[in-house]
Each structure stands twice: as structure tokens, then as C-alpha cells.
Simulated assay, not measured.
Amino acid sequence: MPNVKYLCVLPTVEKDTDRLTKLTVRGTLTGNPQEFSVNFVNDPTCTDNITYHFKVLVRLQTIIENYKQKGEWSLSHKETYLNIFDGTGSIDSKSDLINNNNAADAISSTETDFYLEFTLDYANSTIVVYQLRDSGHNFICEYNTLFDLTEIQAVQIWGDVQKINLFAMGYD
């Protein structure tokens, strides 16, 4: 498993109206990246409970969404085939990508930057993910969480990340 590259403990809030509603992350991946993930964890010192796990398998252009409870990953995870680097939308199937021998060529050396926004909807216990571009927000996915979003205490970034260029938090 890759190492944690970045950890941000969220500030404690005094009331429900002062809570994280938006997280923006911009980063650069290492050369020949395989994967990276953003975890919204319920304890900054322990990863036994993860409210939301957003993982990108770069070469396969696959996004995996999941959660972890009491140290066990959920069996019901969600996979989406999408190239978040070019914003063109989904791929029909992973087998098409592999059968066309495009997996190794899916990401060029100039496409190693990511720019994501996570919007937290407390009323519906969902997290919506967007890819940010000059042309605006491109919807990537929406995930219904098992845990209440108020349980999130930290954000971790794992995997083949060379550097975080921007980490911004928006509050109510």
C-alpha cells in the first residue's frame, strides 16, 4: 500500500454552521503514476474508519469509491471508468481500454496534474466530486456515505503524488 503523502487535520468547529463544505486539491503526480487517493478519515491517527475513499487508478482510468468501517473495507464499492485528466467523459469499459492496448498510453507525461473539488452535503450525507478546468467544473461522481459527514476529522492523500500545489478548505 502506498504511503500517506499529505495529511490535514481539520479544525474543530464550535457549531454545525461552521463546517467544511468544500475541499479543493490540486497536485502533481510522480512520473509513471499508478494510483492516488484522497481519504476523508474519522481519526487522523487511525485509518480504521474512513467516511470516503476516492481512489484513481491512473493507467486504467478507473475511479474507485469506498468506505472503511472498523478496519474492514466495504464490499460494496463503486467503480467508474473515466479519464479525469482530459475531461472527455467515460470509457465504455475497462476491457475496451486494455484490449485496445491503450492502458500504457492513457496518460501522457504532460497529463500528470489533477485538480479536484469535493463538495460535502451534510443534509444528504453525500460527497460530490468535480474536476476543475479553465472551462469550469466537470462532474465526476457523487457518493452516499455510511458515516455522518460530521465524523470526518482529517483528509489524507496517498499514492503516487509528487506534490500538492493547492489545498483549500471552504466553510459555511
Results as ranks from 00 to 15, higher is better:
T45R: 02
L29Y: 03
P33V: 03
T30Q: 08
L82T: 07
L29G: 01
L75A: 09
G31D: 14
S109W: 00
G71T: 08
T80M: 15
K22Q: 14
I91P: 01
V58M: 02
H77E: 15
S76H: 13
G71C: 01
N102I: 08
D48C: 11
L20Y: 03
T112F: 07
E14W: 05
G31I: 06
L116K: 05
D113V: 06
D86C: 06
T47L: 13
T51H: 00
H77N: 06
D113R: 08
T30V: 13
Q34V: 09
L57I: 07
L116W: 08
L57W: 07
K68T: 02
E111S: 12
T17C: 11
N101G: 14
T30M: 02
D96W: 10
T21A: 13
T62R: 13
N100A: 14
T24I: 14
D43F: 05
V56A: 02
E14R: 12
N49G: 04
N66W: 01
D92E: 14
R59H: 09
I91R: 02
D86K: 08
Y81E: 06
T88Y: 13
A103S: 14
T24F: 05
L57P: 01
L75H: 09
D18P: 03
K55Y: 11
C46S: 15
H53I: 03
A104V: 04
G87M: 04
A103T: 07
D86M: 05
K15R: 15
T47G: 01
C46D: 15
D105L: 10
